[in-house]
Design a protein around this nucleic acid. Structure first.
Lengths: 212, 212
DNA sequence: ACATAATGTAAGTAAGCACTTACATTAATT
DNA sequence: AATTAATGTAAGTGCTTACTTACATTATGT
């Protein structure tokens, strides 16, 4: 066995903690239920993590590790701005949906657990974010993206649109007036036409008026 | 006295509940502390609201009422798309910042309290949202906003950008690489250039927020 | 086979929780 | 002044929580 029994039990406890905390929130998640979901006794939980607080901290680190692992597979860029951003948007959106419960929890309890929330959200999204920044910077130098945009702010606007979309879908999925796909497509379109230079305007294919 | 003692105590309890719940979350907010903050005994709390659940429900209604009241003052539109949306964006952003703790709480606990979260977020933002929809529809008919956009989706993208910006600012305010003002300005610029028709391409002049 | 590491079982502790009961006190109304 | 409505005080109930202790059981490695 590559992993010891100790490590396997620890991992099961962390996964169970993620599961229960996502359902019940941090305050609502009891050590009893976490241990039960993990299939171990409550005493074992406290032998691995001396307090609930320490378990929470370990959970945050665990998630961070999982995320940067999942996003490690570098997507190949085609240099087609609209196509690449579509790929990126769906990658990001799917990640958000997969971890919706956790995202909600950390947003809601960010004030009470600032260091963990910061750790999870900032560190987990950092590599993907930097890749996108480098990609857009490349486009800026090639003249297809406007040079007068703050790249950090712009990227956060982009991911923020997708995040907010996911949050809103759960709250009122019925009477939104649009589908998930429609929303994401709108995000992409808005973003591309917002950062692209006038020369590079991919959207209105009919009769481009000459720019002045 | 316009308001009876009964109603005043009830109001103080509701305000205290908002205060404590915003700080501690719904699960973390204890009836003891809510009563203490309200300056009444815990028994009085239970005489006004038979259970904690019922108190939560009353809180949701109270917030909804407060919000639609605050947004009742109709802003006059100047028909200048960029200018009007700037005004709207700052109005919305300030509202979000004012109620940040509550927004966070309801996002985080939306799954466990679906009806209250829906009530607060949907109903509170509804009038403002409808006004913006009507305004944009007007611009569509006048040809300054593209006709091929889903207005509902587009509005949600706009408000979503602002919401996500507020959420992110609290988590990592230091190392963002941009200011709040910069973020909001980027939102506006992205949005305007994304929905405007090619004929109507406003020159993006940096606008300052109305006030702190 | 044996020593040790990891877990289970059972029971319990002290604290905090929502919520109640009984009775005294204050304020408003009549 | 008398009645009533609104609140306070004090004590307590039953439940759940994080966390502990003592001891028995299983798996693991040598």
């Amino acid at each position: 066995m590559g992993t010891s029994k100790l490590a396997r039990t620890r991992d099961r406890l962390l996964e169970a903690a993620i599961d229960v905390m996502a359902r019940e929130g941090i305050v609502g998640a009891t050590t009893r239920e976490i241990a039960q979901v993990a299939g171990v006794s409550e005493v074992t939980l406290f032998r691995h993590f001396r307090t609930k607080e320490q378990l929470l901290s370990a959970v945050a680190q665990h998630i961070t590790a999982l995320q940067s692992e999942a996003l490690a597979n570098t997507a190949e860029w085609t240099q087609d701005l609209h196509r690449d951003l579509t790929h990126y948007a769906w990658l990001y959106n799917n990640m958000l949906e997969k971890h919706e419960a956790l995202v909600r929890m950390f947003i809601g309890e960010a004030q009470r657990h600032p260091e963990e929330a910061l750790q999870v959200f900032q560190q987990a999204a950092l590599p993907l974010r930097q890749k996108l920044a480098a990609y857009l910077q490349n486009h800026v130098e090639r003249g297809s993206v406007r040079a007068d945009v703050n790249l950090s702010a712009t990227i956060d606007v982009f991911t923020g649109m997708l995040l907010a979309g996911m949050l809103r879908r759960r709250i009122s999925p019925t009477c939104l007036g649009y589908s998930k796909e429609e929303y994401v497509v709108h995000c992409i379109r808005l973003f591309v036409s917002g950062i692209a230079t006038p020369q590079y305007t991919p959207l209105p294919s009919v009769e481009l008026p000459p720019q002045l």
